[in-house]
Each structure stands twice: as C-alpha cells, then as structure tokens.
Amino acid sequence: MKTLYMVRHAKSSWKHDVIDHQRPLKGRGRRDGTLVSNTIKGEMPPPQKIISSDANRALTTANYFKDAFEVEDKDFSTNHDLYDFSGQNVMKIIKGLDDSLQRVMIVGHNHAFTSIVNMLGNKYIDNLPTSGFVAIEFKEKSWSDITTGKTIKTLFPRDLK
C-alpha cells in the first residue's frame, strides 16, 4: 500500500520585485503553513520522504512540514520538475518514486496539484487552497502502477480558523 501526501505551497507575496520562482511567502502564508503542518503532524504518520519544488514559496512551505514531522535532511529533497503547473512532470515524479517508500509528501503548485488530487483521489476538490494538505492511499504495491486511490484526509487552513 502507498500513501501520497500532496501540499500546495502557502500563500505567496506579490509585493517583491522578483521572478516567479523566487517569490517568498507573505505573512498569511507563513502562519497558514505553520498551522497546517503542526496540526497534521498529530493526525497522520510522518512521510518517509518529502520532495519539494525548488521554488522559494514551495521550499519554505515544505520546510514547515519537514520540521513538524521531524524529517531528516537525508529524507528531504527538491526537484525542479515539481515547478510544474500542468501536472505532467508531477505525475512522472509520482510514478517514478522508489517502491521501498510507503508514504511520500510532495510540495508544489496549482493548477497541477488540484488536477492530480482529483485524478488520483476519490473525493472531488474544487480548488486545493494554498497550504492545503491531501492524503491519498493506494492499494498498489508499486508507485508506477497507481491509478485511483482513496482520499483519506484533507486539511485546509480554513478548517482550522
């Protein structure tokens, strides 16, 4: 059995004169990322690996979850291919995960993440919000074989306010 945790990056700030890839989080994003990560750590087992987009806003968000779940540095990585908005690269990463891993968290971007949680999960989510967490469980033994799984948990900032 495989479990995929998907997290959309926290709310980013548009007030800085930087390229999209370097946009930081805004105050609300920092608060929501901390709130969701600290809540979910008490509700779900820790991921064995976290893979984040290397965009500033996603990496900062991923670090909140890394710290909350106490994931070691060796089990945390970035992948530029998660800086993907269509979902094709994200799906390649998911399907290519090491089968020794049972629980993996990926942190990235919309529209890809909303599309993928709806494609892989069995619960329709209109829009995966910033700092949104979704866990999907699959019966398959190999990541390359996953199709539709069961959405076992969603946690959005609005659920906690």
Rank of each mutant, 00 (worst) to 15 (best):
P24C: 08
T147C: 13
D126W: 04
L59H: 14
K150T: 12
Q102D: 14
L82P: 08
I51G: 00
D99Y: 05
Q48Y: 01
K49E: 01
A10I: 08
D17W: 11
T61S: 13
P45N: 10
A10D: 07
F85K: 10
M91E: 00
L101G: 15
F133R: 03
R23A: 07
P45G: 08
V71F: 01
R158N: 10
D159L: 04
V107K: 02
F76R: 02
R57N: 00
T78Y: 12
D159I: 08
I146V: 13
K153Y: 05
T61D: 10
D98P: 02
D145N: 15
S12E: 03
D32L: 01
N122P: 04
V104N: 09
F76W: 08
I50Q: 07
K95E: 13
D98K: 06
I51V: 15
L97Y: 01
H16M: 07
Y5I: 06
V18T: 08
V18K: 08
S115A: 14
D81H: 11
V71D: 10
M91P: 05
L128Y: 12
E72M: 01
I94M: 02
L4Q: 07
N79S: 10
S37Q: 09
S142Q: 15
P129G: 13
F133A: 04
S115G: 03
P24D: 11
I93F: 03
L59F: 11
L155A: 11
W14Y: 13
A62F: 06
M6N: 02
S37T: 07
N79D: 15
M119C: 09
Y83G: 04
P47H: 09
M1T: 10
P46H: 08
D32W: 00
V71R: 00
T148V: 15
F113R: 09
P47M: 14
V107T: 13
A62I: 00
I136Q: 06
P47V: 10
P47N: 04
Y124D: 14
P24H: 04
G87D: 12
M1S: 07
N56H: 12
S37F: 01
N110K: 07
G96S: 10
S77H: 05
G149W: 07
M6W: 01
A135N: 10
W143L: 03
L128P: 00
L155D: 08
V36S: 06
K141E: 14
L101K: 03
M105R: 06
A10P: 02
Y64H: 10
K161C: 15
R28E: 01
K49M: 15
T148L: 15
I51C: 14
V18P: 05
D126A: 12
E70H: 10
I152N: 13
